[in-house]
Nucleic acid binder design. Structure first.
Length: 286
DNA sequence: TCAGACCCTCACAG
DNA sequence: ACTGTGAGGGTCT
C-alpha cells in the first residue's frame, strides 16, 4: 500500500535537480523518479502544479521529504542574489527550477570520496554495487527493482579494503574505509559540523585522507547546505576561465579570490547553475 | 608550485 | 572483433 502526498510548487525542476550530479542514486522512469531518502524508498513525479510523492512505508509526517527537497526555500530571492552578467543570466534561463538538495551527510561524504577522477556513470555504478552488497534491503512496490539503503558507517567499518575494492572503487577503497571508521568510532562527528563556520567545517572534512577542498565543499553544499561552499572541479574551473578570464590564465589562487568575491552570499547555488549550464551546453553541441 | 601515481572502466581510434 | 590509448565532479606525496 502506497502513501501519497502532493507538494504544491511551481519552481521546481525535478529532472534537472535529480540528474545534476549532486545525488547519484535516483533512477529515471517513464514519468517519475525513484530513489532512497533516509532509508525510505520514494517515487517522485513532476505534475503541472507540483510534485507527487509516493512511498512504501507508513508516513505520518512528510517533513523529511520537504527538507530533502528544500521546498521552503525562496528560490527567487536566491536567484536575485546572483551577479548580473550575461553568463549567469543564461544559466538562470537554461536551468529554470534547478535546486540544491539537502542530503544525508554520511551518504554524501562517502559518495563524493568515491567520485574522484570518475565519470558520473561510473560513480553511480560503484555506489549501486556498494549499496546492493552492503546496504539493508528496503521495501519496494511490486514491479520495481530491489532497492537498498546506503550502507551505514558501522557496516563499512568492519569490512576489509579488499571487500571494498570488489565494489570497483579502486584506490578510493582505503579512503572510504578510513572515513567509515572515523565516523563509526565517533572520532569524526558529522552532526557537529552543522554548527561550525565554513572554514572550520572544511578543515574537519579535509582532515580525512582522500578528502580535499573539492570533495569537502560538495559535502558542505549538498548535505549541510552551507550557501557559500563552492566546489571547484575541472568543469567549473574550465567554465570560469572560459567565461570570465578568456584572455588570461588565472592562477588557482586568483580564481579562488574571484569566486569568493564575485558570486555573493549564495555562491554555492550559483556554482550549481553554472555547472549545469555548461554541462548541458557541451551535450547540446555534440 | 608541480608532476606522477593511484584503480578501474568506458569511449573511441586504428 | 581486437588491442591500444586516454581520460574521467581529485588527492596525496
Amino acid at each position: 500500500m502506497l502513501n501519497e502526498y502532493f507538494f504544491e510548487t511551481n519552481s521546481f525542476n525535478l529532472d534537472a535537480t535529480l540528474d545534476s550530479g549532486q545525488a547519484f542514486r535516483w533512477v529515471a522512469h517513464q514519468d517519475s523518479w525513484s530513489g532512497i531518502i533516509h532509508g525510505r524508498w520514494v517515487r517522485l513525479s513532476s505534475k503541472t502544479c507540483g510534485i507527487l510523492a509516493e512511498t512504501t512505508s507508513p508516513v505520518t509526517s512528510w517533513n523529511w521529504l520537504a527538507d530533502y527537497l528544500q521546498l521552503e526555500l525562496d528560490i527567487e530571492s536566491v536567484l536575485k542574489s546572483f551577479p548580473r552578467d550575461q553568463h549567469m543570466e543564461k544559466a538562470i534561463h537554461t536551468c529554470h527550477g534547478l535546486r540544491l538538495l539537502r542530503q544525508d551527510p554520511w551518504e554524501t561524504l562517502a559518495s563524493f570520496i568515491l567520485s574522484s577522477t570518475k565519470q558520473i556513470v561510473q560513480i553511480r555504478q560503484i555506489i549501486s554495487i556498494l549499496s546492493e552488497r552492503h546496504g539493508e534491503p528496503l521495501k519496494v512496490p511490486e514491479g520495481f527493482a530491489p532497492a537498498y539503503d546506503f550502507p551505514k558507517p558501522g557496516t563499512l567499518a568492519i569490512l576489509s579494503e579488499k571487500e571494498l575494492r570488489e565494489c570497483k572503487m579502486g584506490f578510493r577503497a582505503p579512503y572510504l574505509l578510513e572515513a567509515a571508521r572515523c565516523v563509526d568510532s565517533g572520532a569524526l562527528d558529522l552532526e557537529s559540523i552543522r554548527a561550525l563556520s565554513l572554514s572550520e567545517a572544511r578543515l574537519k572534512l579535509t582532515s580525512l585522507h582522500g578528502v580535499g577542498n573539492k570533495i569537502a565543499d560538495c559535502v558542505l553544499l549538498f548535505a549541510y547546505g552551507f550557501p557559500e561552499a563552492f566546489p571547484v572541479d575541472v568543469w567549473i574551473a574550465r567554465a570560469l576561465r572560459e567565461l570570465y578570464f578568456p584572455k588570461r590564465k588565472p592562477t588557482t589562487k586568483r580564481l579562488q579570490n574571484f569566486i569568493s568575491s564575485y558570486f555573493g552570499p549564495n555562491s554555492g547555488y550559483a556554482q550549481q547553475y553554472l555547472f549545469h549550464y555548461m554541462r548541458n551546453r557541451e551535450t547540446n553541441l555534440k
